[in-house]
Simulated scan of single mutants.
Amino acid sequence: MPKHTRGGRRPRIVFIEPAETQVRVLSREQTARLDAALSTLAEAPADVKQHATATALRDYQHDGIRVIFYATALGSILIVTYVEVD
């Protein structure tokens, strides 16, 4: 059974610069892959490994996609700071 945040409620995902700019230049195929990755990490953001240089940041990497983000204290919002899609 998959883990869910906040009793089954998924967090809202917000992009800040430079992630917002990075997302705007993705192709449709890349955007679809990123959407799938965001859905996966939204299920259990606390399970994503910590970023190497900042413990508040999480660094999700899978299948050519990298998303660096942090979650608000209650986990209701994921704030994406960096996006990379091969």
Rank of each mutant, 00 (worst) to 15 (best):
M1P: 08
M1K: 14
P2R: 15
P2S: 15
K3P: 06
K3A: 15
K3C: 12
K3S: 14
K3F: 13
H4E: 10
R6Q: 08
R6G: 01
R6Y: 03
G7H: 12
R10C: 08
R10D: 10
R10W: 09
R10N: 10
R12A: 05
R12C: 01
I13C: 09
I13G: 06
I13W: 04
I13Q: 14
V14S: 10
V14Q: 13
F15N: 03
F15M: 07
F15G: 02
I16M: 12
I16A: 12
I16Y: 08
I16C: 10
E17Y: 07
E17G: 04
P18W: 04
P18F: 06
A19C: 06
E20W: 09
E20M: 10
T21D: 11
T21G: 10
Q22K: 11
Q22Y: 03
Q22L: 07
Q22S: 08
Q22R: 11
V23A: 07
V23Y: 04
V23T: 06
R24E: 10
R24K: 13
V25Y: 09
L26N: 02
S27H: 07
S27Q: 06
S27G: 08
S27F: 07
R28F: 14
R28G: 15
R28A: 14
R28L: 14
E29C: 07
Q30W: 05
Q30G: 06
Q30V: 04
T31W: 05
T31V: 05
A32W: 10
A32T: 14
R33M: 04
R33L: 06
R33E: 06
A36T: 07
A36P: 02
A36R: 10
A37F: 02
A37M: 04
L38S: 02
L38M: 10
S39L: 14
T40K: 13
T40L: 13
L41D: 01
E43R: 12
E43W: 05
P45A: 01
P45V: 00
A46P: 05
V48H: 00
K49D: 10
Q50S: 09
H51M: 06
A52H: 11
A52R: 14
A52Q: 14
T53S: 14
T53A: 15
A54K: 13
T55Y: 08
A56W: 05
A56M: 12
A56R: 13
A56E: 11
L57H: 03
D59R: 09
D59Y: 08
Y60Q: 01
H62I: 05
H62W: 11
H62L: 11
H62K: 15
D63W: 08
D63N: 14
G64Y: 09
G64N: 12
I65E: 03
V67P: 01
V67H: 01
V67I: 11
I68W: 02
Y70M: 01
Y70D: 01
Y70V: 00
T72K: 15
T72N: 12
L74C: 07
G75I: 00
I77R: 15
L78P: 00
I79Q: 04
I79T: 11
V80D: 00
T81P: 03
T81L: 09
Y82D: 14
Y82F: 15
Y82P: 04
Y82E: 13
V83M: 02
V83P: 01
E84N: 13
E84P: 04
V85L: 05
V85H: 06
V85I: 09
V85W: 04
